[in-house]
């Protein structure tokens, strides 16, 4: 794990930051982009943090007016993830390699139970299955927030426990199928917006798996 001297962050701050990344990725894949999201992505710190992809993204987002961009992105989100017609169903049970390829598969039940044990459940109004990419990402955000809370309040044991939950969930679930998401998404010819986020998703989760294992 990166220690404070490497990244300049304390353990609590790092966990909070990781929670933020998961939260952002969850937002991107949960629903169509909205104005708030676009504003956030165009803020200077975000563009700087993202580096080259950030510039690409910024260029894409400012090519047309905001309304036009939002309409295009909404149409793309629908085309990519909702249908009608062939689309990418962003669910672990559908995309995990070796899985049955169906909604409400065994993985869905396992993920639901796991979240339940941690005290979380999908809110009714969200209308998403427990193994939807956005839900799994938000679960990781929640666990990272728990970890951050632990470090910041001096509860090292609680923090480590939350970290263990993260590792288990990454290895057992999220980490096993993000590669599939990226592959299938590439094939669907996404705009730079979703292409960049697919890359970021994959790269971040891979880093997370490596980092968590060496903690």
């Amino acid at each position: 794990m990166c220690n404070a001297s490497e990244t300049g962050l304390s353990r609590g701050e790092e966990a909070r930051a990781r929670s933020g990344v998961y939260g952002l990725l969850a937002r991107v894949f949960r629903a169509e982009a909205d104005a708030a999201l676009l504003r956030h992505l165009q803020s200077p710190e975000i563009v700087a943090a993202l580096g080259r992809p950030g510039e690409e993204l910024a260029a894409f987002l400012t090519r047309q007016g905001t309304d036009r961009t939002l309409a295009d992105l909404a149409e793309e989100y629908t085309r990519l993830f909702l249908g009608p017609g062939p689309h990418l169903s962003l669910h672990e049970a559908v995309l995990v390699p070796g899985g049955a390829g169906l909604l409400w598969g065994r993985e869905t039940a396992v993920v639901k139970t796991c979240m339940g044990e941690a005290g979380c459940a999908v809110a009714d109004q969200a209308e998403l299955l427990p193994d939807h990419l956005a839900v799994e990402l938000e679960f990781m955000a929640h666990l990272c927030a728990e970890e951050a809370q632990g470090w910041l309040s001096g509860d090292a044991v609680g923090a480590r426990n939350a970290a263990a939950w993260q590792t288990a969930f990454l290895n057992g679930h999220l980490g096993t199928w993000v590669g599939s998401v990226r592959e299938r998404l590439e094939a669907a010819r996404p705009s730079p917006f979703y292409a960049v986020f697919a890359e970021l998703l994959c790269a971040f989760v891979r880093q997370e798996v490596e980092t968590c294992l060496s903690r």
Binding site: A121, V122, A123, D124, Q125, A126, H142, A145, E146, Q149, G150, D155, G158
Partner: peptide, 12 residues
């Protein structure tokens, strides 16, 4: 129990 503050408008 660790209290996790959720933003307003969070799930029920």
């Amino acid at each position: 129990a660790v209290a996790v503050t959720l933003p307003a408008g969070a799930g029920a």
